[in-house]
C-alpha cells in the first residue's frame, strides 16, 4: 500500500491497528473509564433522582461523572426513565451526535420494559433504539444504584468489553 502512495490512508489504518493492540488499548480504556461525561438530556421523571446523584450527599463527580452541555463533547447517555415516542426521537438524535466510543445506561423500570407504563400507547423501550450497556432496576432507582451502575460501566470499559466505534473492521 505504501507503493501505491496513499500515505495518509496507510497511516490511518496503521494507527487504528496499533490502538487495538494490547498496551495502547489498555491505556486508552483506562483513560476512558475515568472520563464519562453524561449528556444533559432528561428523558422523564427519574431525572429527579439523577439530579440527586450530583448533589453533595452522593456526589457522582467523584467518579468523573458530571452532566455536560453538548452531545459533541460527551460520551455517555443516561436514559432517565420512560422514553415517549417524541423523546425517543430526540434521544436517538443526541446519541448519534456523540463521538465514539459512547455508552448508554438505562435507568429505571420504565427504561427496561415500560415499568408501570407498560401498556401506554406512547412509550418506547430503550433497548429497542439504543445499545444499552447497563440497566438499573427500580422506580425510581436510588442514587446509590445509579452510582453502582456507573462503576459497573467503568469496570466494563476497563476490561475492554465494549464496542469501539462503527468503523472497527476486524
Amino acid at each position: 500500500m505504501i507503493l501505491i502512495g496513499n500515505m495518509e490512508e496507510f497511516l490511518r489504518r496503521a494507527a487504528k491497528w496499533l490502538i487495538e493492540k494490547k498496551p495502547i488499548r489498555d491505556v486508552r480504556d483506562w483513560g476512558i473509564h475515568f472520563s464519562l461525561w453524561p449528556v444533559h438530556l432528561t428523558t422523564a421523571c427519574c431525572g429527579v433522582e439523577f439530579a440527586a446523584v450530583s448533589d453533595p450527599k452522593y456526589d457522582a463527580e467523584r467518579f468523573g461523572v458530571l452532566p455536560f452541555v453538548g452531545p459533541r463533547q460527551t460520551n455517555f447517555i443516561l436514559i432517565e426513565g420512560t422514553l415517549t415516542r417524541k423523546m425517543a426521537r430526540a434521544a436517538r438524535l443526541v446519541y448519534e451526535q456523540m463521538p465514539e466510543p459512547k455508552f448508554v445506561i438505562a435507568m429505571g423500570a420504565c427504561a427496561i420494559d415500560g415499568g408501570i407504563f407498560w401498556n401506554s400507547y406512547n412509550i418506547v423501550r430503550a433497548h429497542e433504539i439504543l445499545p444499552v450497556e447497563v440497566f438499573i432496576p427500580g422506580c425510581p432507582p436510588r442514587p446509590e444504584a445509579v452510582i453502582q451502575a456507573v462503576m459497573k460501566l467503568q469496570k466494563k470499559i476497563k476490561r475492554g468489553d465494549y464496542y469501539y466505534g462503527v468503523e472497527r473492521e476486524d
Binding site: 428523558t43 422523564a44 415517549t84 417524541k86
Partner: peptide, 14 residues
C-alpha cells in the same frame, strides 16, 4: 410540550 406525555389518565382506566 408532550415530550413526557406518558398517558397517565388513559392507563389509569386499565
Amino acid at each position: 410540550v408532550g415530550y413526557v406525555h406518558r398517558t397517565v389518565e388513559k392507563i389509569a382506566e386499565t
